[in-house]
Design a protein around this nucleic acid. Structure first.
Lengths: 228, 228
DNA sequence: TTCATAGTTCGATCGTAACCGAAGCATTGT
DNA sequence: ACAATGCTTCGGTTACGATCGAACTATGAA
């Protein structure tokens, strides 16, 4: 009863381990099929199907059918932010799913968060952009400066195109592994796409981690030097 | 299984209607007893007790016993932010607990959000502070300017004291009713306390709403004029 | 001491939701 | 046309957790 919006429904949706795992996997940004999601959830396809239907009815997921596959994605960036913020919160309270395992290091170094770069490299990139004066920061807020705009044009990103989108250009996103902010928003997405296009890095098969090529690694570290 | 922190536990904690109601009530900022919380949850004291134990074990609540009462509060501001952000999310997807009721208007006008002012008045205050140049805003980030510091001193708030706290001075908090930002952080708290101390406003008995006296209303509107 | 209030713990009940096997559609490939 | 793949729906089982009555502990008041 009472006043205000109902958090319980959403909490309950996220509260099931299988569903939580699927949502976390979708934070990786790429669309996944029901079968793949059943895998990450550790359940059979039938069960996954009902879970996915619930998540979609709750407005957390969107699906588009393509051929005989059904691809699921997070409904929008707001969902991704909610999940990541819950992850940050959970990590802070020590709610961990397991002790740090073998795959963890790669994940901490660089991973994808919905559609932008997170992890150690993500944090480093934002720090560097701020230090060079390309991005101005007040608290959690970020804004691209004129210097930043021209710097980005030089590496092949036209900010004009991005501005037209309804989505905010710069947005900070709290990292659960680093507990620091990294760059989200359409600019964050554009930067990551840029790296992938150039072949500096590529997505890993079934994980959220991102692997840099030796050459890409060098370029990235040169472009975004650590602070003095 | 897999990687990363466990969202499911927290989701499940929030996912029960009774617990969600209790948490929402505690967003009102004041400490409540187990019996009171049982009331807002619509359950018996026994059931509430087990719920509260779970919430505390999960790190969402803190309790301190005083006499034969046990007062519960949200563990910290991070919990409050999580709850409010979930409310905003839920409101956006139309997950409402009921159709707009009679008490709603008061709640939309001015209510307490953990320890600062939210609702229409909260949003107006922040807008006005930004318009007057007392607070600088970039995206979601907020910072107090020198002008703001002297303005505040004039109404009896010494910012120096606040800076010493570990808690951030300015923080934006998304309003579920207005869907706009209002001012949180230690400054937001100080401002609300200031209004209460001056007798401009007072908390309502068992609700989150805040009622302004006629005189207080006048003063508030004069101090924080709507934008031209 | 005795009584009353506040809260926890125990035990049992009950409902719901997660789960999977099997069957049913739909789309693609041969 | 037929088979294979991807997914949904149905039915029945099972398990977990929310719930409350009752008994127990603790603090305060008479």
């Amino acid at each position: 009863m009472k006043e205000g919006p109902d958090i319980a429904q959403i909490g309950a949706l996220i509260g099931d381990p299988a569903r939580a795992n699927m949502l976390a996997a979708l934070t990786g940004g790429r669309a996944l099929t029901a079968t793949e999601l059943a895998g990450v959830g550790g359940i059979t396809l039938q069960t996954a199907s009902t879970h996915l239907a619930k998540l979609e009815a709750g407005g957390l997921l969107a699906q588009r059918k393509q051929g005989r596959h059904r691809y699921f994605t997070l409904a929008d960036e707001a969902v991704a932010r909610l999940i990541e913020s819950m992850m940050g919160f959970a990590a802070g309270r020590g709610h961990l799913r397991h002790r740090p395992g073998p795959k963890e290091p790669a994940l901490r170094k660089a991973r994808i968060c919905y559609d932008h770069l997170a992890g150690d490299y993500g944090v480093r990139m934002l720090d560097s952009l701020i230090a060079s004066g390309a991005i101005a920061a007040i608290g959690d807020g970020l804004a691209l400066t004129e210097k930043g705009e021209s710097d980005l044009k030089r590496i092949g990103i036209d900010v004009g195109d991005l501005r037209s989108s309804r989505r905010p250009l710069c947005r900070s996103c709290l990292d659960w592994s680093e507990r620091r902010a990294h760059l989200a928003g359409s600019l964050g997405k554009a930067l990551l796409s840029n790296f992938l296009d150039k072949g500096w890095a590529r997505r890993t098969a079934e994980s959220r981690s991102i692997t840099f090529s030796p050459e890409g690694d060098r370029q990235f570290l040169r472009l975004f030097p650590a602070e003095a």
